[in-house]
Simulated scan of single mutants.
Amino acid sequence: MSTLKPAVSDKDHFEGGKSASIEIVEFGDYECPHCGHAYPIIKQIQKTFGDQIKFIFRNFPLQEAHEYAFPAAVAAEAAALQGKFWEMHDGLYENQNQLGESLFNELAEKVGLDLGKFKSDYGSDEVTEKVESDFESGIRSGVNGTPSFYVNGTKFDGGVEDLFQMLKESAE
């Protein structure tokens, strides 16, 4: 059974309860159609369970298959340096069919980023290294496709619908 390596830390982006009993990590690719399909279901899970879960997103851009996966992950991490990771993350998934530099800049403006800082952060080693570090974590954790989910540190075998069902059953 695959386990999450390294464990969730303060380097990760999360939403929900900081000390929630259920921790869900998604390894995702902004251009992956399966991740795009999972996105609204994850939102539904978050709405249903609120602070009972802590949701973490790690970048796993499949560069060979998806031309804009890595640049999109870099855009999200550049936004994170201004405290707007989730706004950019959501914008990227909600406009998945328009990924590209013009969308990244449009979203940066829409979420209220300092555009000069966004552009310089977008090209920075710090941001690229964060994406590469997430990807490396996925390799070490046994990720073999996106989206891949880990629940409380253990790989979840199933899709996002199965995950939602399991959470609903465990809450009863």
Rank of each mutant, 00 (worst) to 15 (best):
E106Y: 06
E31T: 10
M1I: 15
S9E: 06
D12M: 00
T154G: 14
L103M: 12
G50Q: 01
V151C: 13
A75P: 00
D12G: 00
G28N: 14
L107I: 13
V131S: 05
V151E: 10
T3R: 05
K119Y: 12
S21N: 13
K110N: 14
I42E: 02
K130G: 01
I42W: 02
E67K: 15
I56A: 00
S120D: 11
G153R: 13
V160Q: 07
V143H: 01
A72V: 07
Q165R: 14
I41P: 00
Q46R: 13
K5S: 05
I139Q: 05
T146M: 03
L115G: 09
K130W: 02
F57R: 04
V8T: 03
E136R: 02
E26M: 03
G112H: 15
L62T: 05
S21T: 14
G36L: 07
F104C: 13
V127M: 01
T3M: 10
F27P: 09
G145S: 10
G17M: 07
A75K: 01
G17Q: 05
S170N: 07
F14C: 02
S133P: 07
S133R: 11
H34D: 08
Y93I: 08
R58K: 04
F14V: 01
G17Y: 07
A79Q: 04
D90K: 08
E132D: 12
A171K: 08
I45Q: 04
P61N: 02
M1H: 14
E129M: 09
G123Q: 02
K168A: 11
Y122A: 13
G145E: 09
K5Y: 00
F49H: 00
D162R: 08
Q63Y: 00
F149I: 11
D114F: 04
V127R: 02
L115M: 15
V127W: 03
G123H: 04
G36N: 07
N59M: 04
N95Y: 04
F55V: 01
L167I: 15
Y122Q: 11
V127L: 04
A72R: 08
E101Q: 03
A73K: 02
K54D: 07
Y39T: 11
